[in-house]
Simulated assay, not measured.
Amino acid sequence: MSSHRVNQAWSIELRHTEKIVLLALSHHAVMSTGESSPKISRLARDCGMSESAVRDSIKSLEAAGHIVVMPIRRGVTQFRVKAGGGE
């Protein structure tokens, strides 16, 4: 868990759906790398959102440069949170 990244995510102006997904990804992130790999179903449960809403938020966050999406293998995706990481 990266409290620093969570705190930085709070300061970014986003729509509520993107903000909660960024906060959840930041919560799961390793502090040194910003990397996390929670499943979409876990993010949906954590955020109180549908899986499709989480996917849409992830696309928006990636397009805005707040995260990097890195498919690892079928069914496994790693996310790198850039908010507050200095990247």
Score class of each variant (00 low, 15 high):
residue 17 T to E: 15
residue 70 M to F: 03
residue 58 I to C: 06
residue 52 S to A: 14
residue 33 T to H: 02
residue 78 Q to I: 00
residue 18 E to R: 13
residue 17 T to P: 05
residue 72 I to K: 11
residue 48 G to Q: 04
residue 39 K to P: 03
residue 1 M to T: 07
residue 18 E to Q: 15
residue 17 T to V: 14
residue 72 I to H: 00
residue 19 K to L: 11
residue 81 V to M: 13
residue 7 N to P: 00
residue 30 V to Y: 15
residue 43 L to F: 01
residue 40 I to S: 01
residue 83 A to T: 15
residue 30 V to M: 13
residue 4 H to Y: 10
residue 16 H to K: 14
residue 21 V to W: 06
residue 40 I to T: 12
residue 43 L to Q: 02
residue 33 T to W: 00
residue 26 S to H: 09
residue 24 A to D: 07
residue 40 I to N: 05
residue 18 E to W: 08
residue 36 S to Y: 01
residue 20 I to L: 09
residue 46 D to A: 10
residue 57 S to R: 02
residue 6 V to E: 13
residue 18 E to N: 14
residue 43 L to N: 01
residue 61 L to V: 11
residue 82 K to P: 00
residue 35 E to S: 01
residue 55 R to M: 09
residue 35 E to W: 05
residue 70 M to T: 14
residue 74 R to N: 08
residue 11 S to C: 06
residue 73 R to D: 04
residue 22 L to V: 05
residue 29 A to C: 10
residue 27 H to M: 11
residue 71 P to D: 06
residue 10 W to T: 07
residue 13 E to R: 14
residue 16 H to W: 04
residue 78 Q to S: 00
residue 58 I to M: 10
residue 3 S to T: 08
residue 9 A to Q: 02
residue 68 V to A: 13
residue 29 A to F: 07
residue 39 K to I: 00
residue 64 A to P: 01
residue 57 S to L: 03
residue 39 K to T: 09
residue 55 R to A: 09
residue 51 E to V: 05
residue 20 I to P: 03
residue 49 M to N: 04
residue 66 H to G: 07
residue 53 A to E: 15
residue 76 V to E: 11
residue 64 A to I: 02
residue 19 K to N: 03
residue 11 S to I: 06
residue 17 T to F: 10
residue 59 K to H: 12
residue 71 P to I: 10
residue 64 A to D: 14
residue 81 V to D: 08
residue 22 L to Y: 05
residue 68 V to H: 05
residue 2 S to F: 03
residue 85 G to E: 03
residue 64 A to C: 04
residue 76 V to M: 08
residue 67 I to E: 03
residue 48 G to W: 02
residue 51 E to Y: 01
residue 76 V to Q: 09
residue 12 I to E: 12
residue 69 V to W: 05
residue 11 S to E: 12
residue 1 M to K: 04
residue 15 R to L: 13
residue 24 A to F: 05
residue 71 P to A: 08
residue 1 M to V: 07
residue 54 V to E: 07
residue 2 S to L: 06
